[in-house]
Amino acid sequence: MPIEVLLVEDSPGDVRLTQEAFRDANKAIHLHVAADGVEAMAFLRREGIHAQAPRPELILLDLNLPKMDGREVLAHIKEDSNLKTIPTVILTTSEAEVDIVKSYQLQANCYLTKPVQLDAFEALVKSINDFWLTKVKLPQQRQNG
C-alpha cells in the first residue's frame, strides 16, 4: 500500500532533498509536490488537472509560499470538514515564536524547522517517517461517495 504524502514547497532544492530523504527512509511513500498554496488547495480539492489526485495521509507545509501562503493554506485545510482530519505538519526555516504560536492556533498538528545541515535534514525526514507514517494512527482514507 503506497503512503500518499503532499509536500507544499516552492524551493526546487528543498523539494529534491525531501524526495531523496523520503526515498531513503521509506520506499512506500508517494511524495506529491505542490509549489504554491493555490496548487496545494487545488490538489486537495481535486480541481482541474488534480481531478484524480489521491487524498494524502500527511501534509508537509512550508509557511512562505507564492500566491497563497502556508498560513492561509493551513487555515483553509482546518476549516474544511473533509480535509481537517489530515495531519498537517509545518516544515519551515522560520524559528520565529510568532510563526510557531500562530501555526498551533491555526491547528497545525506539529511544527518542525528545516535544519540547514544536510545530514540533520535527512535525520529529520527519517524521524517524520518513523513517527508520523509508522507510529501514528492516521484517520482512514475517506472517499466521498
Binding site: E95, E97, I100, V101, Y104, C110, Y111, L112, T113, L124, S127, I128, D130, F131
Partner: peptide, 11 residues
C-alpha cells in the same frame, strides 16, 4: 525524540 527534541513548541 519528535516532540521534545525536533518539534518547535509554543513558549
Amino acid at each position: 525524540d519528535l516532540w521534545l527534541s525536533n518539534a518547535k513548541l509554543s513558549q
